[in-house]
């Protein structure tokens, strides 16, 4: 297990490097000179050259990449073009916000998915199964920004129960209802897709496991239903967690539209603004951070799966 863990961690290094290289090249493969987007069109050539030297853009690409990466790893992502201030602090706040939203959304989706999927799998082909599958299908096929707007109309506009925008009162975030109520609608909206996917995964797993010979053995030992459920959960857990981990990762970056609908100041918003303002350094930095999260979550998922399923451990 230790050997596998080390090996798996070692594997993430080349992946991380490749990912960072792609992010770095984003700026250089996009058409035009990056300097052009910073300086006015009539800037004299000497000034451009001076700025180029200032940014280190006159050095060979590999050197630029090395410098950029070593700075990025220390949290220095350079300056935002549109705002003219360092990217780091803004990105840090946005990532924290997105992570919070994604974690809530994913957890909610995970719980809903496990309950619906477990019920559907245990009562396969009954009305419960059909109902749960219907909900799951709704979850994966309804556009979630649309559902977000519907929720806003119902709960904010009509019932006036929950806020529709932002993260609550100005000032630092606090774990109280005044702040948390801002999280409800976006988290519910965001949970929809993972809920649907997890429902389908868990349903398939549970109904497959329930048909396995070892379940008959457990019944033959006289175990109560609760005892059998424990076995079903442990057998279904590795695959479910894998699906969930990847969902969490994609929620982090994939919630652009939901963050836009609810004006949630996360990485989605940051990306959204960066794209519209052609703020390449911000785009570069945000993509890099999200990609690293993806790689990291993949690592965690793999290790968790291996820890849970003894058959995957190659001693």
């Amino acid at each position: 297990m230790l050997e596998y863990t080390l090996k798996r961690i070692a594997y993430t290094i080349p992946i991380g490097l490749a990912v960072s290289l792609v992010c770095f090249m984003l700026v250089h493969i996009s058409p035009g000179d990056p300097i052009d987007s910073i300086v006015p069109p009539d800037t004299p050539t000497e000034v451009i050259e001076q700025i180029r030297a200032e940014y280190g853009l006159d050095r060979p690409l590999p050197v630029q990449y090395g410098l950029w990466l070593s700075r990025a790893l220390q949290g220095d992502f350079g300056e935002s073009i549109s705002k003219g201030r360092p990217i780091g602090p803004d990105l840090w706040v946005a990532t924290k916000n997105s992570l919070m939203l994604a974690a809530f959304g994913a957890t909610l989706g995970f719980v809903i998915g496990c309950v619906l999927g477990g019920a559907a799998g245990a009562f396969r082909d009954s009305w419960i199964d059909k109902l749960c599958l219907g909900i799951a299908l709704f979850g994966v096929s309804v556009p979630h920004y649309w559902l977000g707007m519907v929720l806003v109309i119902i709960f904010s506009v009509q019932l006036n129960l929950l806020p529709s925008m932002g993260m609550g009162p100005t000032g630092p975030w606090a774990w109280d209802w005044d702040h948390l109520r801002f999280l409800v609608l976006p988290a519910v909206t965001l949970s929809l897709i993972p809920a649907g996917l997890v429902t389908r995964t868990v349903r398939g797993l549970v109904s497959d496991i329930m048909g396995q010979d070892y379940i008959t053995t457990l019944r033959g030992k006289g175990l109560r239903t609760s005892g059998i459920v424990l076995h079903v959960i442990k057998n279904a857990a590795p695959t479910t967690l894998a699906v969930m981990g990847l969902q969490l990762a994609s929620l982090l970056g994939g919630s652009i539209l939901v963050e836009a609908v609810f004006a949630w100041p996360g990485t989605g918003m940051l990306l959204n603004n960066a794209i519209f303002q052609r703020d390449l350094p911000v785009l570069q930095a945000t993509t890099l951070v999200l990609a690293f999260f993806f790689v990291f979550l993949n690592l965690i998922v793999d290790l968790a799966q291996t820890a849970l399923d003894p058959r995957m451990r190659r001693t």
Partner: peptide, 25 residues
């Protein structure tokens, strides 16, 4: 009552122990 009966009164051995035993316990 059946779950009390299975085990202490009657129990069973299956054909294929690899599939009849839970792989993750």
């Amino acid at each position: 009552q059946l779950s009390q009966y299975r085990g202490p009164v009657v129990s069973m051995i299956f054909q294929e122990p690899l599939s009849a035993l839970d792989p993750v316990f």
